[in-house]
Simulated assay, not measured.
Amino acid sequence: MLTIIDKYILKRYLATFSAMLLMFIPIGIVIDVSEKINFMLENKVPFIEIAIYYYHFTIYFANSLFPIFLFLSIIWFTSKLANNTEIIAILSSGISFTRFLRPFIIGATIVSIFVLLMGFFVVPKSSEGFNNFRYTYLKTGGKEAMRGDNTDVFRQISDTEFIYVNSFNPLSKIAFNFSLEKFKKEKLIYKITASRIQWNPKQRTYTMYDYTKRTVGELNDKIEKAPEKVARFSFELEDLTPVVYIAETLTLDKLVKFIDKERSRGSSNINVYLVVLYKKFSVPVSAFILTIIAVSVSSMKRRGGMGINLAIGIALAFAFVFFDKIFGVLAEKSSIPPLLAVWLPNIGFGILAVYLLRNAKR
């Protein structure tokens, strides 16, 4: 049962967080417009496209900087409580510091569930709209820039089949120096090669040029050649080089299926996709950690007033975002397990939260 004090603090918690979002999002939009207005005018982007882009930008921007907004809002209103000696009055009435934290934890739970559901269902759609606009109108190279590395692509397409292409053009859907190898119990059964292979989307077939198929026999190999051959395979050439931000645009169930599919194909970007998946769960949990740190730092009345608390809060908030980004990149580019890298900032700041909370209780 919530008491009057619980409702008072919870209301301030949610109201200040909402106000912080409403205050900084327009600033972010203004800065973004000032940076991109020349590109929009040069490319003659329709107004409706710009309006839709900034709708997606608002959600994308708020989700990306959510830890900073939450942290600063708690620092702000908790410091005001401390400066007005409201916290001293609450604790003097016999309420323990742990009990004082309860409405903050409830607020963090509400925010964390909201962020979790947004990350599962709403943010992926906004991420797709946000990135599609950027790569269509603002990036040099257009759709080409959306692709990952499209040279020397090697994939396992089934338990027994492997394909390789030297390069792939996603616009013409043509791959060069194609080869397909089929194995059985680690023994090569046959190998197909072609100087180039083209995907025919209407017929859902492939046209191979300078086609050669070598079937391995016990005594002699069988070789089949043709200047041109049409065939069906269980893969699409476009799948060889998925859009670089594809994982961000998928809802949770689709993302899990996509990762399983890419893992079976031996994708070199699998760590990138795993980081996106794990962050959907780690970011909401950070709401609790940041809440405890913010309350512990700002609950004491300091000689410098709110300015000191805000300075400490800004430094800690940006440190959290910095380490979150750094470990995310390390997970994508190094041998650090993605699960560990994504959760390391929460673990490190969780330990800091426990330390600060123990000091605040004293």
Rank of each mutant, 00 (worst) to 15 (best):
A311Q: 07
E332G: 14
T151N: 06
S112R: 06
W199G: 01
V295I: 15
Y55Q: 14
A353E: 10
V123D: 00
T212Y: 10
I347Y: 07
S18Y: 14
N220M: 14
E86P: 07
K139T: 10
G305K: 07
A317M: 11
K36Q: 15
S96G: 07
I5D: 09
A331M: 02
R265L: 02
L72G: 00
I326K: 13
G307M: 01
F318E: 04
G348S: 03
I293T: 00
F168I: 05
F24Q: 10
D159M: 13
I9Q: 07
I163E: 03
L14D: 06
F281C: 06
G148S: 14
K185Q: 13
R214Y: 13
F183G: 04
V295C: 00
I37D: 08
G305S: 07
I336Q: 07
G28K: 00
L240A: 08
M23Q: 04
S267L: 01
W199P: 01
F168M: 13
E86A: 08
G119I: 11
E181H: 11
F71P: 00
D152T: 09
I29F: 09
V230Y: 14
D152P: 13
T16K: 14
M300R: 10
F133Q: 03
I174C: 11
K280Q: 05
Y278F: 15
N38S: 12
T109A: 08
E128L: 15
E181V: 15
Y13L: 09
E262D: 03
F114L: 12
F130G: 06
I95M: 11
A353N: 04
I95Q: 04
L116V: 11
R12E: 10
I95E: 05
K254R: 10
P345W: 10
A360G: 03
G28F: 08
S73H: 05
I293Y: 00
N271H: 02
G348E: 11
K36E: 13
V165A: 01
T207A: 12
I197G: 04
F114C: 07
I223S: 07
L352A: 03
F327E: 00
I95A: 04
D324M: 12
F77V: 00
V354D: 11
R196H: 15
V321P: 12
P124G: 01
L356G: 07
G119C: 11
H56T: 11
T151S: 10
K202S: 15
I59F: 05
